[in-house]
């Protein structure tokens, strides 16, 4: 019996030492909040160019706890996130390293990176409004505020108010207009919902196509994904039933969020990590982001993809994302308070 146990333990220990957690010079270890299939193409090119192997561990819940718990023993060198919130949490937790890189400072506008180099935005995505071509008039909805107008009653679809994209949008409203105004607005939106918040952004487009609602809030790249989906051509139809509206062009601009990256304080291969970040901010990777994921590159002068271009250019809200991130908890509580998801 005891022999069986020890055999199992030894077997496990042997297996444990297989993947590349050991320090080797030509490696970089990445913790990613972004799904591997989204980032793998860029990483492959990076390896091809530099000879540095990228090891990835992807997780969403608990990654920050993992970094904190591993402390100085962490095998990870850098992290990738899908929004500003996670970057800010890590900054607050003190697990990030300040990176001073000319390449990064040059390629990334100040608004999309931490002033001391703790984190860097790599792409932006705008939180826009999908509107039914048939059922929404040209100037009927032009701003987020319009969504709270009683004339929209029963016409809005949205994913959970607790999703980080919506939390970020609500937090930006709080920064601009204060808690009270924002709460009034959110209540207005809730009153106009066609159904309980559910699904992801693509599901909202489908609901518009099927006539369950007329407008929805969504991220830009979902539109690109649907428009080019050859394997599921029905999604092209959903997209073609929808007009894109960049809200608030007359005033503060459309809310944007970033996907970003940072180097960890206890990185063992800091140099390689910085190289990876610099590559991700380079022309090559930036245009890949634009072409494959329909995101907006942060590097000025990198052309957006043709598809993205066809949606038109827009004025982005230039408010500090750090400031927005600070109000996320407040936004989450507001969603609870008014029972937005119920």
């Amino acid at each position: 019996m005891k022999r069986t146990i020890s055999t199992a333990v030894i077997a496990a220990a042997m297996l444990a030492s297989v993947p590349g957690a050991r320090a080797a010079s030509e490696e970089v270890n990445l913790y990613s909040y972004r799904q591997p299939f989204l980032i793998q193409p860029m990483l492959d090119v990076f390896t091809e160019k530099t000879g540095i192997t990228v090891n990835v561990a992807y997780a969403e819940e608990g990654m920050l706890e993992r970094i904190k718990a591993e402390g100085e023993n962490t095998p990870a060198d850098a992290v990738l996130t899908a929004d500003i919130g996670r970057l800010k949490d890590m900054e607050d937790a003190g697990v990030l390293a300040a990176v001073n890189s000319e390449v990064l400072s040059e390629n990334i506008p100040a608004a999309y990176r931490h002033p001391d180099g703790y984190w860097f935005g790599l792409t932006t995505r705008a939180r826009i409004i999908f509107a039914s071509k048939d059922r929404v008039g040209a100037d009927e909805v032009t701003s987020y505020e319009d969504l709270a107008d009683p004339k929209m009653k029963g016409r809005i679809c949205i994913r959970s108010g607790k999703h980080l994209y919506n939390i970020s949008l609500i937090a930006s409203m709080i920064v601009h207009k204060g808690v009270e105004e924002t709460e009034k607005w959110l209540l207005g939106v809730k009153a106009n919902l066609a159904r309980k918040p559910q699904g992801n952004d693509r599901a909202q487009a489908k609901a518009i196509y099927e006539g369950q609602c007329d407008v929805a809030i969504a991220n830009t790249y979902y539109m690109g994904n649907m428009q080019t989906n050859d394997e599921k051509p029905e999604q092209k139809e959903w997209a073609s039933a929808i007009n894109i509206i960049f809200p608030n062009q007359g005033d503060r601009g459309t809310h944007v969020n970033i996907s970003g990256a940072a180097v960890l304080k206890h990185a063992k291969r800091k140099e390689n990590a910085v190289k990876l970040l610099e590559f991700l901010a380079s022309e090559t990777a930036q245009s890949m982001y634009a072409a494959q994921n329909f995101e907006y590159p942060v590097k000025p002068g990198v052309a957006v993809s043709e598809r993205v271009q066809s949606w038109g250019s827009f004025k982005a809200d230039t408010i500090s994302l750090s400031e927005v991130a600070k109000h996320r908890a407040e936004a989450a509580r507001m969603v609870d308070r008014i029972g937005f998801d119920q």
Partner: peptide, 11 residues
């Protein structure tokens, strides 16, 4: 420094 022996492994 041995690095992570137990955490982050198949064990």
């Amino acid at each position: 420094p041995l690095g992570l022996v137990l955490s982050g492994t198949v064990f």
